[in-house]
Structures are given as structure tokens and as C-alpha cells.
Amino acid sequence: MNDVLAFFASYLDVGQTALELAMFNGLTVLALFLSYSMLNVCDLSTDGCYTLGAAVGVVTVIELPKLFLGLAEANPDAAGFYNAMASASPYLSIVLAMLAGMVSGLVVAVLQTRMGVQSLLAGIVVNTGLYSINLIITGNRSTVAIMRKTDTVFTLMKDGVKDTFLADQYKLAVGVIAVVLVAVFLILFMRTKLGLAIHATGSNADMVRSSSINPAFTTTIGLMISNSFTALSGCLFAQQAKSFDINTGSGMVTVALASLLIGGVFTARRSVWVRVIGAIVGTFIFRLVYAIALKMNMPAYMLKAVSAIIVVLAISGPYLVKQLKLLRRRAAANRERGEAYADPQ
């Protein structure tokens, strides 16, 4: 009996880790929902942008308090202001990470809408460039650790929920808040005229143009918003892990796409808010299945192979099913014809 309980308890644990990871990755999935599902742009700068968010998030959360406290000492008149800024650093770091993501999205958009670079290539080029940019931001360190006493939104949340039932779930709480905010924003945003125009750009750019809206403009806004979420995702992930790694984002676009497509299986052709929720649910399902697989001794390095296979299956699955039916019919037709020829009469 105890064994059984322990078994379920261990799966409950798996569930919580899956949920936490689902929340941090879910932000990237929502970012891809905007760029891939709505704007119909496969943004391959996602990996680099995720790492960019992590780099900016980690470096600023470490350096900003030092900077502001130094300024407070240097300018005693404005010490109050600088001290307040120093204590607001955890929030500032998130804002800065999102701004960095926006700039990255802007570059991708300008390359593909104003400079004649193909959409996929624009993403790849920016992704490659970001590798160096990220190392510049961290001062050419491929890993950076956040010290225990450094404040992040997670330590603030941990202090905030210290004596409540959420004490062990502070990471999850931050993740849920972030995902809910971004999801609500997306659902409301996609109903505005700008959101509709972005959706229409992915569906039929000609129609957007004939509605007197420049598709280059909608693509730019869409990619900027989407990349700000990707960077937010990287920033929060690195801050909860208390460390930055230059490879943290590698393969992220495939992993997030796998989650998005799993969600899309249940919500294809439904309204936007259903699809947003579907994307989050898809992330959770993906993470849960992955966590259970880990529990069953699948090595952790299989994550990316599994993601890649899921993406291929989700995209080409419907096509293959159709082809299979066709092949069967063709085989049947050939058989009949063969019989007809074989007929001695």
C-alpha cells in the first residue's frame, strides 16, 4: 500500500515539475502562437531570443542593484530615488529582457519586410548574430550564476508566500501569473483591430493591403510582441534556475513548436481564445509526457529528439494519413485491374 502511495506521490512530483516547466516554456509557446499560428511566420530566431532574455535577465538582476546603490552613494540628494530603483531591480530586469526581445524581433521583421531577406533566413541570421550579442551582454562568460542573496521576482515571491500553503509552489506561482497575464493579453489583443490585422496578415496579406493596412507594419508589430514574450520566457527560466547558460535556448523553437502543435490537435479551426488555452494545455501535456518518460528512465538528452519527432508527426501526420488512404485505393484499383486482365475471357 505504501509503495503504491509512494508511486503516486512520485508522479505527483513529476506533475509539479512538469507544470512549472510548462509555465516557463508556455510563454515561448504563446510567443510562437502569435508568430507561427497567427502571423504564419516561422521565427527561427526564437532560440537566440530566448537566450537573449536569459542573458539580459540574469545580468541586469545582478548588476542593476550595484549600479543604483553606487549612484545613491554618489548622489546623496537623490539617494531615495536610487534606492527605490535598486529594490525595483527584479522587475526592471524583466522589463529590460522584454525590451531586448522586442529589439530582436524588430531586426527580424525589418530584415524580412524591408530588406528583402526571406522570412526563414532572417530568423536564422538573427539567431546566429544573437549568439555573439549574448556573449557581449554577459561579458564573454558562457555561464553566469545568480548569488543567493540577489533579489529576483522568485525570491520576492518566496518571501511573499512564506507562511501560506503556496510556500513550496512559489516558482509555480510566478509562472502561472506570467502565463495568465500573457494569455489574457493575447486573447484581448487578438480581438483589437491591430490583432485582427496581424491575424489577417498570416491568412491573406493581399486582403490586408486592400484594407489599407501595410502588412510590413503588422508583421513588425507581431514579431516584436512575440519576441518580447520569448525573451520573458528565457528571463524567468534563467532567474528561477539562478543561472545563465549560453546554450539554454538551443532547440527551443522545436520544443515550443511541439507543444503548440499538440495543443493545436484539439483546437484547430476554433476561435482564438480557445486556441490560446489549447497552446497552454498542449505545453502541459508535452511536459507531462516528457516527465513520465524521464521517470521511466528515458535519458534527459532525448528531449530534443522527442520534440523533433512530435513536430514532424504533428505537421506531416494528416498528410501521411491522406497519402496512406490514397495508396490503399491505388493498390485496390491495381488488384482489380490485375484480375480483369487475368480474366481468361
Binding site: T192, K193, A197, H199, S203, M207, S212
Partner: peptide
């Protein structure tokens, strides 16, 4: 097929054609 966005609803298509209100306005 060229004049309308197939993934969007009739009212969403019309809303873009009507083009009333600012960027953040709702139907």
C-alpha cells in the same frame, strides 16, 4: 479566395474592411 482571409470569421473580415476606430478598438 484573394479578397478575404479564410482563417477569420465573416465579422472579423468585415471589421477590417470597415476599418473603423483606432488600432486598439474592438468590434
Amino acid at each position: 479566395m484573394r479578397g478575404t482571409a479564410p482563417d477569420m470569421s465573416i465579422e472579423e473580415n468585415l471589421s477590417l474592411a470597415a476599418g473603423e476606430g483606432g488600432w486598439l478598438s474592438h468590434m
